[in-house]
Design a protein around this nucleic acid. Structure first.
Lengths: 143, 143
DNA sequence: CATTATTACTTGCATATTGCAAGTTAAATT
DNA sequence: AATTTAACTTGCAATATGCAAGTAATAATG
């Protein structure tokens, strides 16, 4: 599962960038070939990391979503994000990393909340695109 | 770097099983081919994850050791270990996982300490071999 | 309603990576 | 001096990956 180039990136994009459709992965700039993408999504589904379902309002679209097993990788990805910010070039702003380092639990909880509520707005700006300065995580408690 | 089957396993074995030599990786039961192993060690060194040095007392042996960049992956590996215990079959005893989940910081600190002090006794039994019941982590403070 | 566009793929083929088995080299052990 | 051990290399077959083009189904457009 972590033995190939793309699977973990796909999971990361599901968690961190809020991707849901084939198209989004395809055009994400990482340059995955469509046959490989199809294969990886199929295998990730077979292994219980994600589910796929037709979008109700548009029968062409398939929505991919993490399973519990999949979202449980959030802490791994968070640590990897923190590691990457320290040792490789990532576009994530320092302040955000520092926040994440000192609020690991809250960050994971927020990611989980969004997953549960099917809120797919990307929780980590800087990975998401242009809105790097935005308030990215709610600080007030949620019922 | 996380785009292949072996690199992360090698790093895991360096951290978790205390491996240091080519032989240890080769015979670890994971079944890595020697050419691939040599290649991965070379690349991991080139990318600054590990260093290699001849053993002083035996000129045949090469000792591989994590760099700071490498050991900084410990939190990632810890989360992955916890995830794996929950969702896949690993040989790690439940009690140990529970301990690790509630003492993340201490576990990482201990792993770091051993790295710093070049103590390569494997910190995680159950990955190490037979001594699964052993007191694996010191609970008293170290100067 | 017919045409065009969009989405999620599949197919065929070239290239790259991996795995296996059998060396090779240098240093240690007997 | 001969054997063993450790850390590799080499050659080749099998597998996986990447690219470009194509297809099928649904949706939007005129």
């Amino acid at each position: 599962m972590f033995g190939d180039r793309w699977s973990l990136l796909i999971i990361r994009d599901l968690i961190v960038r809020g991707f849901r459709t084939f198209k989004e992965f395809q055009k994400s700039g990482e340059g995955i070939a469509t046959n490989i993408l199809a294969d990886r999504l199929r295998k990730l589904e077979a292994k219980g990391f994600i589910t796929s379902a037709l979008e109700e309002t548009d029968g062409r679209r398939v929505n991919y979503r993490l399973t519990e097993k999949g979202i449980d990788l959030a802490p791994v990805l968070l640590e990897l994000l923190i590691w990457g910010a320290r040792h490789e070039e990532t576009g994530v702003p320092c302040a955000l990393i520092e926040y994440m380092e000192s609020h690991r639990k809250e960050v994971v909880a927020e990611v989980r909340r969004r997953w549960r509520e099917r809120d797919s707005t990307p929780p980590i700006p800087g990975f998401a695109g242009s809105d790097a300065g935005r308030k990215w995580i709610r600080t007030r408690r949620v019922a």
